[in-house]
Design a protein around this nucleic acid. Structure first.
Length: 740
DNA sequence: GATAATCCGGTTTTT
DNA sequence: CCGGATTATC
């Protein structure tokens, strides 16, 4: 942060005093108050760019350095691993190694830590697995099928979402209000939820929501009052970051733990609440005072990030929301230059918009702004493509933040599933994932048989596999494959104790044939997948054992960018929260795009206000300048669609804005009703002509790319594709290559 | 059981 | 128009 904190004159100590503690250095008066009010419940309303991280770290450092509590008596919670890491590093710098003993982490990591200690009380063993979304969904689908629930009427995704929301609200199946599940799964929602939870327990597994939900169940059980009392005693001080994003379960968790010492400090900003669709409850901020009588509230309103103009624009916009707690950002530095206005630019279409944005980026770069200090923030992920195209065409280095995370890639998940089967033999979901990957001739029918047997015997799949391999219910081929696989598992498990995790992982991936599977794959991305597997093995070197690594992975799904050079960042507005840039581009400000159509048609005022907060978050990311833009027409799903400027544009105060429009686009607002122009006909994909093909001919296929015909049989072609290898394809799916 | 053809739906997603 | 998920076919 290059903010001029040192210009704040009310922090300078009197000359005859000893130098202040380092953690108090460079704090303004309101920040300092928030740091020094250590006793009793405290709510810090901290606007964008007002230095909340600084306050949190200073507060934590002070509590430890002054000996108000031992490090392990302090709980500090964040939402992201990034935030947790950053805080630990900063506190370490202030108080040294003591920082390592603080209970500092994400809600989920801390929940897992507590739950592992008391797992049996939640029907789990302490080495339980934390499932990823893939596994959860697979499990739920099984249940829905078994229960004869129509997947069309009740999409698994939707049922899953409901279950997650219940967990977000701290509701285990037993506490679910009767009315809740009626709409779901033909009225059987509650039953499904219960089965899902039972099945997780049988698998010795839990999902993310359970990490907190199980804690709550244990804490709230009068039979184990001693456990709760123990934690309540322990946590003398508690700090919470991004409090506006807490859901009910997290809130209850905090409230229970803070009950005894009541030294709970929550830092948040209701204007930056953008995750309500994930169960976050802004209401938690409002409830704070009533739940903790005598709570103090401190507002941080001095912004050290943005120019006065940007702050005024943001304030004007967010002022259109009702029911705010009320907070006005003011420039932290009274002498700051007003700064350039927010540029609002109307363009004809998306391609032009991308072109304009990239031109401005180049102009900024020429003027001395580093590429790493510029960001394009979009509403939805798909919008990044247009900008990527343009950036590539221009040759500007860029990075897309938050897309395809390392641990979510197919090959990584497969590899992890292998590790899980070895480290946690009861992990049926992992087993199922890899039992036929690579192909071993153990397909659906074998799996069905395993399921039936497992159910009948009341065992897990792996055990069922062992039984089944000993019978002759399977065809010899499948039986051999299964026995071989089990022998592999057994061998790897014996290595578990003796071999370092890195080499062990490599052994598993090699002997299972998994690496070979990708080596042989001709598809364009196979090469990269092999690379990713290598990276995974390399990452394992740092761990003592496989189990530790798996715990790490299930909790820490982050992707550090090790990109060295300066790059323009492209990301969603959600991903941008907490970040800052000199120059920020906010494209796609059109009704239906931003605010999003679904927010307009479904969620009513609440949704619209959340969209507005998202816009507010976007604007307040900028230190020096904001560029807003929108296109009069956009091609969505191959349809040209006229659009109107976002209402948020009109909500920016006139004095903060400079409007630029293309000739013909009136007053900066799309003349959508009078399209005085015609969209250029889109480049038509060549239509397959009615013709016959000859062997040897070069062709193109939508999915497989280019290839050469090796044989013709009526309308069926044998083709050897450059990338995908030999395939049989019907001729209407290909076109002569020279047509392109 | 593996592959090709067809169908369908299409925000945001810190763990 | 794209991709994934489902179905249809060999």
């Amino acid at each position: 942060m290059g903010s001029p904190f040192d210009l704040d004159d009310d922090v300078s100590p009197p000359a005859d005093q000893p130098a202040p503690s380092p953690w108090l250095a460079a704090l303004n008066s309101e920040q300092r108050l928030a740091v020094e009010t250590t006793e009793g419940p405290l709510l810090v309303l901290s606007g964008a760019g007002t230095g909340k991280t600084r306050v949190l770290t200073a507060r934590l450092a002070q509590i430890i350095a002054q000996g108000r509590a031992r490090p392990w008596q302090v709980l500090s919670v964040t939402f992201t691993n990034r935030a947790a890491r950053e805080m630990r590093e900063r506190v370490q710098r202030l108080v040294g190694a003591a920082a390592e003993q603080v209970w500092l982490g994400t809600f989920h990591a801390l929940g897992a830590r507590i739950l592992r200690r008391h797992a049996p009380l939640a029907g789990l063993e302490s080495n339980f697995t934390i499932l990823d979304v893939d596994d959860q969904l697979r499990l739920l689908k099984q249940i829905l099928t078994e229960e004869g629930i129509d997947a069309k009427a009740s999409p698994p995704q939707m049922v899953m979402a409901s279950i997650q929301r219940w967990k977000d609200r701290g509701l285990p199946p037993a506490r679910l209000p009767n009315a809740e599940a009626v709409e779901l799964a033909g009225g059987r929602g509650a039953a499904i939820y219960r089965i899902y939870q039972d099945r997780l327990a049988a698998l010795n597994a839990c999902d993310f929501g359970d990490l907190l939900l199980h804690c709550l169940t244990i804490f709230q059980n009068p039979a184990h009052a001693d456990i709760l009392a123990d934690y309540q005693d322990r946590f003398r001080y508690m700090l919470v970051d991004e409090y506006q994003d807490t859901n009910v379960a997290q809130y209850l968790w905090l409230r229970l733990l803070a009950q005894k010492h009541r030294n709970l400090c929550c830092v948040g900003d209701d204007d930056q609440s953008i995750y309500s669709w994930r169960g976050a409850e802004v209401g938690n901020i409002l409830k704070f005072e009533s739940d903790f009588p005598g709570a103090r509230i401190i507002r941080l309103e001095a912004n050290y990030r943005s120019t006065p103009t940007i702050l005024a624009a943001a304030a004007g916009l967010i002022g259109h929301n009702l029911g705010r707690l009320g907070k006005t950002l003011r420039p932290g530095n009274a002498e700051a230059e007003r700064g350039p206005p927010v540029v609002v630019r109307a363009l004809w279409n998306g391609a032009e918009e991308a072109r304009w944005v990239v031109e401005e980026i180049e102009a900024e770069q020429r003027a001395g702004t580093k590429l790493g200090q510029m960001a394009i923030l979009v509403r939805a992920g798909f919008q990044t493509r247009e900008f990527e195209d343009r950036l590539i065409a221009t040759g500007l280095p860029y990075r897309v933040v938050g897309s395809l995370r390392f641990y979510e890639r197919q090959e990584i998940r497969d590899a992890l599933a292998y590790f899980r089967v070895v480290a946690q033999p009861a992990d049926d979901l992992a087993f199922e994932r890899i039992v036929n990957t690579p192909k071993r001739g153990l397909g659906d029918s074998t799996l069905q048989a395993l399921h039936v047997l497992a159910r009948r015997q009341g065992t897990g799949l792996v055990e069922a596999a062992r039984l089944l391999a000993g019978t002759d219910d399977l065809k010899p081929k499948a039986r051999k494959a299964l026995a071989d696989l089990l022998a592999d598992f057994a061998r790897w498990r014996t290595l578990l104790a003796t071999m370092a995790p890195g080499p062990l992982a490599e052994t598993i991936l090699d002997q299972s044939g998994y690496t070979a599977m990708w080596r042989q794959d001709r598809s364009p991305d196979a090469q990269g997948r092999v690379e990713n597997l290598k990276e995974l093995v390399a990452a394992l070197e740092e761990f003592d054992n496989l189990g530790g690594f798996l715990e790490h992975v299930s909790l820490v799904m982050d992707n550090d960018d090790k990109s060295g050079g300066e790059r323009v960042s492209v990301m969603t507005l959600h991903a941008a929260k907490g970040l800052e840039y000199d120059v920020v581009f906010l494209p796609g400000w059109e009704e239906g795009v931003f605010p999003h159509q679904r927010a307009l048609s479904e969620g009513g005022l609440k949704s619209l206000e959340e969209e507005r907060r998202l816009a507010y978050v976007g604007i307040t990311r900028a230190r020096r300048q904001v560029f807003v833009s929108y296109a009069a027409t956009r091609r969505i799903y191959n349809r040209w669609q006229d659009s109107l400027a976002s209402r948020f544009i009109a909500e920016l105060p006139d004095a903060t804005v400079e409007t630029l429009a293309e000739r013909g686009l009136s007053g900066g607002f799309a003349a959508a009703s009078v399209p005085a122009w015609a969209p250029r006909p889109s480049v038509q994909a060549p239509v397959a002509p009615e013709r016959s093909y000859q062997p040897g001919e070069r062709i193109f296929h939508q999915k497989f790319g280019y290839g050469r015909i090796t044989a013709v049989d009526g309308n069926k072609l044998d083709i050897f594709f450059d990338k995908a290898g030999a395939k049989k394809v019907v001729d209407s799916f290909v076109m002569p290559a020279e047509n392109l």
